[in-house]
């Protein structure tokens, strides 16, 4: 009985369990509306489409749990797709070198975000907002406004193709495998010393620094990881959807929504990476549900907005009920030692 109650508490507690309960509930509604959704091909297609957001959510999780924001990921995803198209320009032989270059670029953008935030003490909100503007402008300046060039077939493989003719499942998309591998990597990473220092930093920066945690190093690393995740997401989205000037637009807000939906607290120190990725899947499932219900696409933002407010209000209420310790102040924009 008590085990049942604690399981119920875990599901309703606004933590990791809740987001997966929500995901299952949404899937149940989807199944009721359209039973065909759970046949292998359409399920695989769903996962293929969801993979970039899940990967971005893992990257954003590192940044958020350490007490920062990364608003530049959407612009970075867009930049990476445009860079790939311009540099590859349809030549198969250039695919691998360009992917290497993109990873370097993503890491460099993350490093710049991290160093400006930690060494120059600029709040990450401003740092990454500035980076968003810089990337947006620089990419359009470089290409003269509209994306030029084209992607090679092998570049698009990762986002579009998969292992064919698998019994029962049909195609297993590469995107799904990449997502699972990176997700497992992220979970492992959070179990290392780095992961523990990262969460501790978000929870109490001063105490972590006094106990010998390298606060600035882990925060900078988190930004680099976010930049790399945006690169991988860019490769998958470019492969899946092709090149356009609008790729990645507004994605920073979608991914922050996903992470928060997973019960990760803005301001840092609470939440798990699995739940963040679960939040991304849930959000994608919700968009699928909107499709199934044939809701007017223009109404989607409203539902999305209402859901994130409700989810966070629910989590905040649960925290208030469960913790008797003095309420920690809501810290929307940390990362500046006073």
């Amino acid at each position: 009985m008590s085990r049942l109650r604690s399981a119920a508490a875990a599901l309703a507690g606004g933590g990791t369990g809740t987001v997966f309960a929500l995901l299952i509930a949404i899937f149940a509604v989807v199944a009721a509306v359209n039973p065909g959704f759970f046949e292998a091909p359409s399920l695989m297609a769903f996962l293929k489409q969801a993979a970039p957001l899940v990967i971005l959510a893992a990257g954003q999780y590192f940044v958020i749990v350490s007490g920062n924001f990364d608003l530049s990921v959407g612009a970075l995803v867009g930049a990476q797709v445009v860079i790939a198209a311009r540099l590859i320009d349809g030549e198969e032989s250039r695919t691998l070198p360009v992917i290497g270059l993109m990873l370097l670029f993503g890491a460099a953008v993350g490093l710049a975000n991290g160093l400006i935030t930690t060494a120059l003490k600029v709040q990450s909100f401003i740092t990454t907002l500035g980076m968003l503007l810089v990337l947006y402008g620089a990419i359009r300046l470089w290409t003269g406004g509209a994306p030029t060039g084209s992607l090679s077939e092998s570049f698009r493989e990762a986002g579009r193709m998969g292992i064919e003719n698998v019994p029962l499942l049909g195609q297993i998309p590469w995107a799904l495998l990449i997502m699972l591998a990176l997700g497992a990597g992220a979970v492992q990473l959070m179990r290392t010393r780095f992961g523990r220092v990262l969460i501790a930093t978000g929870d109490n920066e001063l105490a972590t620094a006094r106990s010998g945690g390298r606060v600035d190093t882990v925060r900078t690393t988190a930004f680099v990881l976010s930049g790399l995740s945006a690169t991988v997401a860019g490769i998958l989205i470019g492969g899946f959807a092709g090149v356009s000037a609008q790729v990645g637009e507004g994605m920073e807000f979608t991914v922050i929504t996903a992470v928060v939906l997973g019960g990760v607290v803005l301001g840092g120190g609470q939440g798990s990476v699995v739940a963040a990725m679960g939040g991304a899947l849930t959000l994608e499932a919700l968009f699928t549900l909107f499709n199934q219900l044939a809701l007017p696409a223009s109404l989607r933002p409203s539902v999305q907005g209402a859901i994130i407010i409700a989810a966070v209000a629910y989590a905040a209420r649960q925290r208030r009920l469960t913790s008797r310790k003095p309420q920690r102040e809501a810290r929307p924009l940390t990362a500046t030692p006073s």
């Binding site: 928060v260 109404l299 933002p301 409203s302 999305q304 209402a306 994130i308 407010i309 905040a316 929307p332």
Partner: peptide, 23 residues
Amino acid sequence: YLGVNPFITTLGVGLIIKGYLDT
């Protein structure tokens, strides 16, 4: 009163208005 982070609150309210306007 609900203790929701202002970033999320105003992003959400903004999205709600956006959906209304678009529709």
